[in-house]
Design a protein around this nucleic acid. Structure first.
Lengths: 168, 168
DNA sequence: CAGTATCCTATTTGATACTG
DNA sequence: CAGTATCAAATAGGATACTG
């Protein structure tokens, strides 16, 4: 474990004012982008459209798990934020094409950084999860029935240097 | 608007298999990381802890808008995923210190890429939003009462090249 | 084809009160 | 101090049926 703070060359590192008010936090650019992209389908659509324009049902077919409702809603959200362009071709029946805008295509770049990090460290995350879960994730709220219910839990801290009074 | 796909040097660009099944999508590393980080408080905590270890109430004070419940839950989630380490000092009253692990500190790097992109393009997103909203965001579902209700909407496509039958 | 409309469930977040 | 427990509200997401 490090514990010591790393120097990150970014907007993130410099002096973010403390305390952080909810107002500024919610109007923060990073927060906003992460929430845009943190929903269930947006990134997948951006990545897919990164390979070229697609029509509505083409996306619907190719994604499989998505509902029509969510496909529409997600595309609308991306369109609203200027990441995707929607073009209606006046044929009958209508044909609607979705494509990334320049803004949307640009988003693929930082997204790629996250993606690369994710594949590199996903195993670490999953094993951390397993450790946490098997070592006793739940606070053991008195399991009903038999005894001996997961004795050890989080940070036993055996070195009992008795009470010294608390700092500050 | 581009429309033509960009070449992104990443895990994202190469052949993601189509159609995408829900299973593989939900077990995807990128998806997983984005959902971890796409919630309301995780990133803020990671960034804050990037500046050094903090105690529970220290974080609570400094964040302001967060409830005790969400602070606990978010920290637990980060701890479970191995991004944050929790250390209990056996004093009385107890003192608990949270710090980024190496994994958590490493996350700051790709996060910075997103943050930088976000501040660079946030204005573009917001103006796109404004355009979309003022140009008529809602489908105008027959506004009750007076007439002349927001005439123009999305992509009028005036060049009416009549029906040509649909492709494919 | 490309949606809308409606209904319903699950998850997330917050507010409040209590505790070792 | 550092939580947990409980309740309530908001939001996200899905299933299904209908439409220009």
């Amino acid at each position: 474990m490090s514990g010591t703070h790393t120097d990150v060359p970014s907007v993130i590192a410099f002096d973010l004012p403390l305390p952080v008010s909810v107002r500024e936090y919610e109007s923060c650019a990073l927060t906003d982008v992460l929430r845009r992209v943190g929903d269930k389908w947006s990134v997948l659509l951006v990545v897919l459209l990164g390979r070229g324009p697609r029509r509505f049902n083409e996306l619907h077919r190719v994604i499989d798990g998505i509902s029509q409702r969510m496909l529409t809603r997600t595309l609308r959200g991306l369109e609203r934020d200027g990441l995707v362009a929607r073009t209606v071709h006046p044929t009958v029946p209508p044909s609607v094409e979705y494509a990334l805008t320049d803004l949307g295509a640009a988003l693929l770049v930082p997204l790629s950084a996250v993606a690369d990090w994710a594949v590199d460290h996903h195993a670490g995350i999953e094993s951390a999860r397993d450790d946490y879960d098997t070592a006793g994730g739940a606070p053991v709220p008195a399991p009903p029935g038999e005894g001996a219910a997961v004795p050890g839990r989080r940070s036993p801290v055996p070195g009992g240097g008795g009470p010294e009074g608390h700092p500050r």
